[in-house]
Amino acid sequence: MRNKLIHWLIWLFILGIILSVIILFSLSVGSSGIPAKKIFSSIIYSRCTTEYSIIFDIRLPRIILGFATGGALSLAGVILQGIFRNPLVEPYTLGISGGAALGVCLNILFKLNEILGFLSLPLSGFTGAITVIVLLYFFSLKREVFKIHEILLTGVMISFISSSLIMLIMALSRTEDLHSIVFWVMGSLEEPNWLLIKLMVIVSISGLFISYLFCLDLNAISLGEEEAAHLGIDVEKVKKILFLLASILTGFSVSITGMVGFVGLVVPHFVRIFAGTDHKIVLISSFLSGAGFLIFCDTLSRTIISPVELPIGVITGILGGSLFIYALTRRSAFFGEK
């Protein structure tokens, strides 16, 4: 047991270092490069220089938002993978992100955010996400034994339907709304509203804490729902709470950063290779790696063809989609079923 703990601590330490390096890198590169040495001096000494304002007003908010959403999306991925016992499910492949996106688009179309305030955006995203989860929940309940392929296919179809509806909304909406919808659908970590960023940080970190209350249950569920019930776990209750948690995490992430897909697929996959399958370590390390991964992707998105900024969803989509196909072709190892 002590060996395992030491192993875990070393692994978390390495993750922490990688995350700090990525944050430093992200702070320093961009349309105006700031060398790492200068970052510290400008943070400590000069409050009025351009470097200071670039770091604090432009780059740092993006990094904080990247940290929160990257962590939240990976966490949602780990939770859903734990419940469905399949490494291919995540908010994006299950159509939960699509549902959240549709919710937010409807909000923009009907201008609810102007009436109810900007907090209605994350709430409508959450409503969209929970709707999809409820659909999936009943779909899996109706059959005694759900087939994971069917769930995945349903998820993909829900994604299709919601993206078609989003296109319909785009066709119906006026030009000034159109720009905000398009930009938002493609995904970006640029968020001028500090309050939303703070909200996202609170949601994702409390999500991490809440998920830890269920790490033993998730470990037991990995043996199958019946086995978990024999081990004294109220499987239905745990599933409901975790589904709710996953949809809060996804709904808030999507409504603030737009459709950033596959983070919840890529990150936990690699975390399991290095850290094992025990949720006690998988949850925290997925959170940290997801944060690092999204900050890194965001840095790429704004530097690859600078000064033009790529949508971050494009980068995570290409990386994650390729991994998804790779994982599908190695089905036996991933599905663990016939």
Partner: peptide
């Protein structure tokens, strides 16, 4: 305690 026949493939 229950011992069933369906031990899921697992990586622990």
């Amino acid at each position: 305690a229950v011992v069933t026949q369906n031990l899921q493939p697992n990586f622990m």
